[in-house]
Structures are given as C-alpha cells and as structure tokens.
Amino acid sequence: MDIDFTRLKYFVAVADELHFKRAADRLMITAPPLSRQIMLLEREVGGALFERGYHEVRLTPLGAHLLDRARAIVQKGAEFRVAAQAFTAEETNLRVGVTAYAPSDFLERFQTVVGELSVPISCDITGSAADVTTKLMAGELDVGLVQFAGIDTRLRSHVVAEYQGGIAVRADDPLAAKDSIRITELRDREVVVDLARPNPTALAGLTRSLQRAGIDRIVRVATHGGEIEVAQQVFHRRLVAILTYAPDSFLGRLFAPPQFKLVPIDTDRWRPMSVALAWTADGARRRPAVERAIEEIVAKLG
C-alpha cells in the first residue's frame, strides 16, 4: 500500500486542531481540498480517521491508532528536508522573492540593491505578499519582500519602507485642491478599491479599514482589474481611487496632472503601508548568508 506523504502531513494537522478550517489555515490551503485529501487518505488506509460532526471533529479509533506513527513519519520527512537543505545551502544562490504590489519605484531600487549584494542571489517577483509568505514557510525562498500588514507572525521581519495612503481624483475634483485629506472626507464619495484587487489579502484589509472609517460606498469598476481601466472610470464617473501615495511609481505617474491629482491621506486616521523584509528563523539558522544579506540590504536602502 502506497501512502501519500502530504496526506499524512494533512492528517496530523487536522488531528492537532480537530477543526478542518483551522488546520487548513495552518497549512495555508483552503478547507475543501484538505477535506478531499483526508478522504483519499482514508481510502488508502481502509477506514475513517475522523468522526465529522456539525460542531466538532474527533479521531476514530483507527485515527488515534495511526496518529503517532503518522507524526513520526512527518517529523522524519522534515528532518530529511533540513539535512538536504543544509548540505546544499552554501552551493546555491540565496533565493529572494518580491511582492509585485509594492510601489514600482521602490521595487526598482530594491532589485538594484539586491543585484549588488556580496552573496549570489536569484531574485523573482513572485506575486502577492501571501504568495511570498507561502513560499518562505515552505522553504522555497530564503528572503521575501512583503507588505507588512499581511505578514505571518511565524516570520521574522524588518521594515524597510513606509508609504502614506493616498487618493487619485480628477484634477478638477474639489479634493484635488487639498494638500492632504482626512479619510473621513470620503464618506459621501464613491470609492474605488480595484487597484488592490490582484492581492486578495490587501483588498480585504483595505475594505475593512474603509468600513471602519464610515465609508460604505465602495465600488468595483474594473472588469479585468487593469490600472488603465480604473483611471478611465475615475475620470468619467468622478470617482475616488484608493492607492499608495507614491508619486514616482507607475501608479503615481498614471494619476498625474493634467488629468488627475494624487493626494496623500492624513496618517491620524489612516495607517501608512509598510514594506518589510521577511525570513524564517530556521532558514537563517541553516544559512548564515540570509542574515548577512538582510544586513546589507537594510544598510544599502538606508
């Protein structure tokens, strides 16, 4: 009988949590595929591992009998991976993953700094902060650049940049005449959040923050999530777009005069967005080059 190792890891997680949703969060997957994998494992071992009630999950006698054995196999698998990584660590490039949703001017500067490091580096723009975090936790990256608001508490981090929030409006909009605005000034306006759409975690956090500030006219206007389409809708419908205040970035240049105006949001009621380096403690222990690279990056970014 062949047993899938990943399913054993999922079995141990569910047994530890006795809750499919919490186990899925711990594994950084969603609950439905986790449930399917457990059912496939139950088919492989020839019996149910869990009793699934509406309010609780319990181990069956078979599940209880197999749990310690499964845990030992998962631990051996983790030890195997650590041994392999330790052997090859100094022979491979340091792997750096970068969120695509930090301001573009900062990303350009960051990539320049990384290219000048004294240790060999491979640097890729990975996707959202959640994508970078997942790869860090899985050991697929050594260092990540993420938006700090969504960082996983299991990671170490160091903030390397902060950006005020901002709005983009038509140049003839009354808000365009202001040097800065309070977030509460948007309560009677239609506010566009589409620029955060490619990053679901950031989008959800942005929406909650707007609602807490009493802004409930939140609209989605882009059918494909494109910045140009958002700019067209802001112009023709006189909307307010929420974004990071970074005038030298791609978005800052897109929403520049004469058609538009970028206005910063006062930080009294609206938290700035932080960009941070992130890494795992285990990764730093296995590879001393991780902390050396982080020190160099921080020093070069100032």
Results as ranks from 00 to 15, higher is better:
236 H>W: 07
236 H>I: 14
237 R>H: 12
237 R>T: 03
237 R>K: 02
238 R>Y: 13
238 R>Q: 15
238 R>C: 10
239 L>E: 08
240 V>G: 13
240 V>R: 07
240 V>I: 13
240 V>M: 12
241 A>M: 06
242 I>L: 15
242 I>H: 05
243 L>A: 12
243 L>P: 05
243 L>M: 14
244 T>D: 03
245 Y>H: 14
246 A>S: 10
246 A>W: 05
247 P>R: 02
247 P>N: 00
248 D>A: 02
248 D>R: 03
248 D>N: 08
249 S>H: 00
250 F>L: 15
250 F>G: 01
250 F>A: 12
250 F>N: 13
251 L>H: 07
251 L>S: 15
251 L>W: 02
251 L>N: 02
251 L>C: 03
252 G>H: 11
252 G>Q: 06
252 G>R: 07
253 R>T: 07
253 R>N: 14
254 L>I: 07
254 L>R: 09
254 L>P: 10
254 L>Q: 12
255 F>Y: 12
255 F>R: 04
256 A>E: 12
257 P>V: 04
257 P>K: 08
258 P>Y: 08
258 P>H: 05
258 P>C: 11
258 P>L: 08
258 P>E: 14
259 Q>R: 07
259 Q>Y: 09
259 Q>D: 15
260 F>R: 06
260 F>P: 14
260 F>Q: 07
260 F>E: 10
260 F>T: 03
261 K>T: 14
261 K>W: 11
261 K>Y: 09
262 L>F: 13
262 L>T: 08
262 L>Q: 06
262 L>M: 15
262 L>S: 14
262 L>H: 12
263 V>P: 00
264 P>A: 12
265 I>W: 00
265 I>T: 02
265 I>H: 00
266 D>I: 10
267 T>H: 07
267 T>G: 09
270 W>R: 11
271 R>V: 05
272 P>H: 01
273 M>G: 04
273 M>V: 11
273 M>R: 09
274 S>C: 05
274 S>D: 09
274 S>T: 04
274 S>M: 07
275 V>K: 02
276 A>M: 03
276 A>D: 01
276 A>Q: 00
276 A>V: 02
277 L>C: 10
279 W>T: 08
279 W>C: 12
280 T>I: 01
281 A>L: 13
281 A>C: 03
281 A>M: 10
282 D>F: 02
282 D>M: 13
282 D>N: 06
